[in-house]
Design a protein around this nucleic acid. Structure first.
Lengths: 238, 238
DNA sequence: CGTAACATTGAGGTCGGTCAACCCGCGTGG
DNA sequence: CCACGCGGGTTGACCGACCTCAATGTTACG
């Protein structure tokens, strides 16, 4: 379906990923680009299961592993000195976390649902990359993409109203998550959303209610969001 | 001066950068790690001069270049549909921007002061990496580090008060910028700071005034900030 | 000296935080 | 079957931090 030249090229030429593809490209063809990393993770990584709401990575420990979510949802976070929690990101099936590499920047990670993951030690990956140049290229691509995503998040957070943040979050989830048509099943609690957007649960709740009452979305069973008017949402997001 | 083992290793072993260095490491030894990239940029990149307040990269154009600031200050930004401007980051001498790689995520860039830069086309870099495996590794390291920095910024922005943001900004600048002792010369205007922190100029101004009036900082000639009590600042930042 | 860009200061309004009460679904146990 | 408790979510009243708008002050530079 998506036989974009740059994508195919990168499967053979690791550094081709520096080229900026001209056309937009949906997430669904990631597999092609990550094939090499994926294969290796499946070969040497270990499949691990975690129950819901357990801490996987502690804030202070060295980030010596790379994680790929197979099923379920994980979030990274940081606890500030006054007790507030800031969520750094949600990781859905197919997402990889642990790519950042700097001292004292390790975020904690915890499961939101039951989770199945592939875990690989970075030292193992290091050994692999010395014999497989393509792999470094793939890691670079993944990291650059994660960087772009976080930069977008900065824009979302820094000068946007509560409504814009919530709408932005919903649209992001519907793009990334297992959204069947116009229905999104949110795996995370209101508190998680609030900590992600830098708001309070009350504000998130009120904003969702406002969106529902003006017919833009529908809410059922608390976590199930239906998009009734996507164009309005896009407009509200700015 | 900084002969950290991991640093030296990465000069010969591109993928060693996946290892998480145990000890903290100041920014000043970046040169060692980027040596390879630096050398190549100096060889095949072109030195370019820009006057202050000109746009270098437009929001819609493809990000096909990598920029390294030699002197002066650059910022990346995005203009929202309602006219608000959000600054993505400031880039000081030694900093590299243009590492992110995703479609529709290109930020605009403009000079804040007169700027001297090294510019290299990513396609040229791609050609180089195919013959120099180390380079990809260096790029990965740089990108991972930039990722960590932006993640930190998310934390700064999403749940902090105006005072915490301003203090965080000042401390960041004093760490990164050419700060001589306790004196920081800010190259950017109040408007730039406000757009960076998601505040208004008035709030920035008032916050700085409050910090000055309680003796924590001194302000002279608008842009010159003196740290009179750094420990108080660190405490205020949370 | 004059001007324009930048910055500060002040008054008032608003959005979102805080605190508290309430609701709802669900499992447990009598 | 209902009572109960519990966690998560919603709703309401109030308040304060920050924004808005406007006037004033300061600096840089011709």
């Amino acid at each position: 379906m998506f036989t974009h030249s740059a994508v195919l090229k990168s499967a053979f030429h690791p550094t081709a990923l520096l080229d900026h593809p001209v056309q937009s490209k949906p997430d669904s063809d990631r597999c092609a680009e990550e094939e090499s990393l994926d294969r290796w993770m499946q070969l040497v990584g270990s499949v691990t299961y975690y129950p819901r709401r357990v801490q996987i990575v502690h804030e202070d420990e060295a980030a010596d592993r790379l994680y790929k979510v197979i099923s379920g949802t994980v979030c990274t976070y940081k606890i500030l000195s006054d007790g507030r929690r800031q969520i750094g990101g949600f990781y859905l099936p197919g997402d990889i976390f642990g790519l950042e590499c700097a001292e004292g920047h390790t975020l904690a990670a915890e499961t939101i649902t039951n989770v199945k993951m592939l875990v690989i030690r970075k030292s193992v990956l290091t050994a692999l990359t010395s014999r497989n140049a393509t792999l470094t290229g793939h890691l670079l691509l993944l990291t650059a993409r994660e960087l772009a995503r976080v930069q977008d998040r900065v824009l979302l957070l820094s000068c946007k109203s509560a409504q814009e943040r919530v709408v932005g979050f919903l649209l992001e989830m519907s793009k990334r998550g297992a959204s069947t048509g116009n229905l999104v099943e949110l795996p995370m609690s209101r508190q998680d959303i609030a900590d992600y957007l830098g708001l309070t649960i009350e504000t998130v709740s009120r904003t969702l209610w406002a969106l529902e009452s003006c017919g833009t979305i529908g809410i059922s069973r608390r976590r199930r969001i239906q998009f009734r008017n996507r164009s309005t949402l896009v407009r509200l997001q700015q």
